[in-house]
Computed example of a mutant assay.
Amino acid sequence: MFLWEGVTEFVAVAEAESFTAAAKQLGISTAQVSRQISALENRLNTKLFYRTTRKVAVTEEGGIYYRHCRQIMDSLAEAERAISDRRGTPQGSLKLTAPVMYGEQYVMPLINDFMLQYPELDVTMDLTNQTVDLVEGGFDLAIRLGRLTNSTMMAKKLTTRMQYVCAAPGYLEKYGVPHSLSELRHHNCLVGNFDHWRFQEAGRERSVRVSGSLRCSSGHALRDAALKGIGVVQLPDYYVSDDLESGALISILEHMQEPEEGIWALYPHNRHLSPKVRLLVDFLADNLQHKPR
């Protein structure tokens, strides 16, 4: 047991490159992490980290020690997973994050169904439209929409979404139907978090800057404004599919519509996917594929 002291804290700091982030991930104080690292360095009689006010990085000796410790911890995790797999009942805690609207409407009902199947699980869900740091926040899994940019994360596609540019029939009767991207500048475009809309023209991606009388971070609010004839909107299918089917909104510029985007489950690259997370990812993938468009 003495030889193991400080190892968990050391690996956490090495991977997070921060004493504070490691402490948050482990659920202990930064001071406790610092004490354990100092004791470990004294026991090994070597310096494991370079410390500055901005960054923490492993020394050459620290890198060697980290690789051995990581192998040991991975082996321990494999042993625990083997027991868990034999037991066949996911249990313990899961910390997740997802975008607010998509999380409320689609993800959380499935999470609740999953918890009914596995009542020994405790779930913490952070619904936010901010891109949180999974490692620093101690998250097991994140649901992300659209294009992925962070190559340090592992990703599994759960389902897809399609972006639609649409407007109410009354708006189009009054202001006309745009047939080219250049015509969008003459229309009142309802803007969300980004003032560029993406299209595909002649097989090439096009990004068009749009503007209008309403800017809002809520897709529901933008949909409502479009339904009331205030302007043109670009929204994913899960906001407008029912309106397009009923005719309350009309899809336009379909010949320049961008291909489907992925909806993803992300987890840290340096964290093996535990059986309970793997089960949840498979459960979400199976059920989100069958959500109505």
Rank of each mutant, 00 (worst) to 15 (best):
M101A: 14
T97E: 14
E80W: 09
N193V: 09
K156V: 06
V132A: 10
Y106W: 15
G262E: 07
A221E: 13
C216K: 03
D85K: 07
D243I: 04
L44K: 03
L110I: 12
P119K: 11
H179N: 08
V177D: 00
V7E: 06
R54D: 14
Q36L: 13
A31D: 12
V232K: 04
L121G: 13
I230E: 04
D122L: 14
V177M: 05
A167D: 03
V233P: 05
H272Y: 00
P236V: 07
G27V: 02
D140C: 08
S38E: 11
R271D: 00
Y267I: 01
K24W: 02
R51G: 08
G219S: 03
A16H: 09
V210W: 05
E120I: 08
V232F: 10
G229I: 06
L266A: 06
R43A: 11
L227R: 09
T131V: 15
G262L: 06
H186G: 07
A142T: 03
D286C: 10
D126L: 13
R185N: 09
H220C: 01
A225Y: 07
K174M: 06
V177F: 07
R86G: 03
P259E: 02
G146S: 09
H68S: 09
A168Q: 01
Q91K: 11
V132N: 09
G137P: 04
G176Y: 00
N45P: 01
A57G: 00
D224P: 00
G63D: 11
L158N: 01
L280E: 02
A77V: 04
M115Y: 06
V107K: 06
Q25R: 13
E104A: 15
M154C: 07
P292G: 13
S18E: 05
H290R: 12
Q36G: 04
L145T: 11
R43I: 05
R161Y: 10
K95R: 15
D224Y: 05
L121H: 12
H187E: 02
Y66P: 06
I263W: 02
G63K: 13
D133W: 10
S217F: 08
R35P: 04
E60R: 08
